[in-house]
Write a protein that binds this DNA or RNA. Sequence first.
DNA 1: GTACGATCTTAATCTAGATTAAGCATACTC
DNA 2: GAGTATGCTTAATCTAGATTAAGATCGTAC
Lengths: 195, 195
Amino acid sequence: MTDFKSILSAVEKHIALDDVERSVLLSSLESKTLKAGDVIARSGEQAQHFIFVNIGCLMTYFTDSDGVERVLQFATASWWTGDLDSFSKHNKSCYTTRAIVDTEVFVLTFTSFETLLEKVPKLERYFRILFQNSLIAHGRRITEINSYSAEERYESFRQRYPTLEQFVPQKYIASYLGVTPEFLSKVRRRISHKA
Amino acid sequence: MTDFKSILSAVEKHIALDDVERSVLLSSLESKTLKAGDVIARSGEQAQHFIFVNIGCLMTYFTDSDGVERVLQFATASWWTGDLDSFSKHNKSCYTTRAIVDTEVFVLTFTSFETLLEKVPKLERYFRILFQNSLIAHGRRITEINSYSAEERYESFRQRYPTLEQFVPQKYIASYLGVTPEFLSKVRRRISHKA
DNA sequence: GTACGATCTTAATCTAGATTAAGCATACTC
DNA sequence: GAGTATGCTTAATCTAGATTAAGATCGTAC
């Protein structure tokens, strides 16, 4: 029995839905279960889904010209994720999205997303607010990256995602922060000595 | 006589408007003329406007703990800009937005934005698409910042904003790229020697 | 005219973080 | 149990880019 509480409360935090709209929304979702390590979107292919994380955690990364995996973002419970560029413009994605732990997601395909917005235009508002908030977060992250030191970014990361460190391998956190795992290790030691 | 061609074509590229909707949109805009150097939003104050650049160019920056100005973004003609965080959540902005050249803008206040969306709900779709595209650009920028070298970022910047270098002081471009003006100068020389 | 303030450049030195490489866990497989 | 893959740590060395400081260039005010 699928549990839609989380996605409904995410949406209804911003807009009010009646019973019909609610059921149109839920019926356009497809549920998927992922084991830790499973890939849901692969670099080089077109992104098929816009993804809502119900339980678990995904990470999105791309592989740079030296073969190094660069983590763009983590998506924990109640977050939307996916490569919007590839998803909405039908070009090949340079990102791979993978489950870090066992994860349950709801996905919208491009056509289900489009018809959903046609049937429930109110959702334009929901996604407008969602994207607006993500945009704010991304802006903050950009200023952080080019004006904070690695140590400051790490502290800020820990505050923003307090639980993530417990199950995400440190090398991915290092990558997200834009440093090598070796350097993160050094930073961690420096911090623990201070404390 | 104010020229609304540019903003109408930006909006109508994504959604169709009838005459009434068009005039509601235009009448909720306030037009402002800025001289080069004029500030339209100031750090420490609440951001009053969501801004469409009709002619000219704005830049948004924040001043870090060492007093260094860090440029987050440039907004050239037909771009929207402004601190959405402060604008929509009514907290103090940490960004300042200033005209780099003589500039003409249209602005929406928070209440005019809200009532506009109520009167013309179609615009939710327009802003959803706008924010979605900005989000894609910001994501791209984040991966660029932590996996490209300064030289690569500079080349990529020149490709994306070919005209900007002609009137933006190089120190602001350096800041946008996340390097010191001295280093940008070095990079430029290195490139010109190669070419 | 020259004095002054920006912006840009060049060069010397310095540092945050990368790279390389070795050692040490834990965990999985045969 | 040994073998080995994977992740984390430590330490030595190296480099991209910062910092500092000294000119060069240009506008503009007096």
